[in-house]
């Protein structure tokens, strides 16, 4: 129960924090490091609003303790931003196609979709649906989320093809 110092690698930056063993990764990222894009939703790993990428894979930060993730690569939505905080093309697609309304679930949705896109170049709509089954959105009805992800994947495939020619 003694607080201990851990070094977290968050969005490519090393951060030293003093944590108790019971501090979840979510507590530390949101409350201590001020990352507003990691959000408390259910505390049970069901809703997906606290999603972060741990070594590239989506995990619920409410179900991990900060002491567990020392020296691991943690990426939140802010970590996807480009130079001068330019939006990631996936975020652009969400804006263009109305994939985000109140925005509370959006960071988790985008990180989950991003990780799928990194592993699977052209996932089917069913694959996208399966992967995002654990990211609850109360606004959009999901259709526009899936549209935005598909649009991003298509754009990316086009760009890659043009680069080859």
């Amino acid at each position: 129960m003694t607080p201990q110092q851990v070094t977290l690698r968050v969005n490519g930056v090393l951060r030293d924090v003093l944590v108790a063993p019971s501090d979840t990764l979510l507590d530390v990222l949101h409350d201590r490091l001020g990352l507003k894009d990691v959000r408390y939703g259910c505390g049970e790993g069901v809703c997906g609003t606290c999603t972060v990428l741990l070594d590239g894979d989506p995990v619920s930060s409410c179900l991990m303790y900060a002491v567990q993730v020392e020296e691991r690569e943690i990426v939140t939505l802010l970590g996807l931003l480009g130079e001068d905080e330019a939006l990631h093309p996936l975020q652009e697609a969400f804006l263009r196609l109305g994939g985000s309304q109140c925005g509370f679930c959006t960071p988790g949705v985008i990180l989950t979709a991003y990780s799928l896109a990194e592993r699977t170049p052209r996932p089917s709509r069913d694959q996208i649906r399966y992967e995002l089954g654990g990211s609850l959105c109360r606004c959009t009805g999901y259709t526009k989320i899936f549209d935005a992800i598909e649009s991003y994947l298509e754009d990316r495939a086009c760009i890659e093809e043009q680069a080859l020619n």
Binding site: G45, V46, G48, T51, L54, D57, P58, V59, S60, L63, M64, T112, E131, G133, G134, S135
Partner: peptide, 9 residues
């Protein structure tokens, strides 16, 4: 089983 995050951990 669960969702992608549950399956990852």
């Amino acid at each position: 089983v669960g969702n992608v995050r549950v399956r990852n951990r």
